[in-house]
Amino acid sequence: MDEFLQSLIRGLGTGSIYALLALGFVIIYKSTQVISFAQPAFMLAGAVLVSYLSPAVTFVGAVVVAAVVIAVLALGVERTVLRPMVGKPVFVVAIITIGVDVVVRVVTNAFIGLDVRQVGDPWGLNTVNFLGAEVQQRYLVMIATTAVVTAALFLFFRYSRIGLAMRAVAYDQEVALAQGVSVGSVFALSWALAGGLAALAGVFVATGAGVDQQLWIVALKALPAIIIGGLESLGGAVVGGLTVGVVESLFGTYQNDFAPWLGPNFGLVAPYALMLLVLLVRPYGLFGKKEVERL
C-alpha cells in the first residue's frame, strides 16, 4: 500500500508538471488553433535561467524572474515569427514552431554545457511522511503549486476582462474583433502565459535531478496529455496531464510484475499507448469539442 501511495504521489507530482505544460499548449491552441512545438525549448530555457539566477536572488525570486523573462521571450517570438503567419495553414505554423524550438534549444544548450546544472531548490530529494508513506517533498510542492496556478488561471479566464476577451477570441476570432477585442494582443498574451507556465514546469522537472540537455524531452509527454484531455479544454489539459503522470508512474512501479513482456521502461511510452486507446473511443479526446463541419 505504501508503494502504491508513493507511486501515486510521484505520478501526481510529475503529472502536475505535464498539466502545467499542457495548459500552455491548450491556451495557445485555443487562441491561435496552433500546437506550439516550441514549448519544450521554453521549458528548458526557464530551468536554465533559474539555475543561473537562484544563487543571486534566492530560488523563489529566480523562479518568478525566469517565468517573467520566458513569458517575454515567448511574446517576442510570437510577435516576430508567428504574427506574419496568421491565416496560413495551421500545419505550416506548427512546423515553424518546431524551427523556433530548435533555435531556442541550441542557444540554451550553449549555456548548459556538458555538465548538469542545479536549480538550487530547497527540497532536493528529501522525503516527508505523508499518510504513512515516505514521499518526496518536491512532489507535494508540485501538486500544490499546480493546484494554485490552475485555480488562478480559471479565475482569470472566468472573471477578468482580458480573460473574457481571450475566451471570446477562442470562440470566434472575427466576431471578437468586431466587438473591439484586440485579437493580436490576445495571441501575444496567450504565448506569454504559455511561456511562463513552461518555465515553471521546467523548474519543477529540474528539481532533484538538475538541468541537462535532455530535459526538453519531458515536455513531449504533455502532447498525449492534451490529446487525451481534448485540445480545446483547459480542464481536460489538467486531467490529461495528471492521468499521464499517474499512468507513467504506476507502469513504472508495477509493470515488471504483471507484464514483463512489455520490456523495461515501458512506463515512459505508456502515455502514448493510452492516447491511442482514448482516441479509438473518442477521436476528440475526453473533453474536446466535436467539430461540426459544413461546406
Binding site: 500545419f91 490529446i227 491511442l276 477521436p283 476528440y284
Partner: peptide, 20 residues
Amino acid sequence: RLRGLYLAIVTLGLVFLGEH
C-alpha cells in the same frame, strides 16, 4: 477518424512507441 493536428500527434506517438 482523426483530423489535422490530432493526427500529427498520434503519428508522433507512433515514433515513440516504435522506438521503445
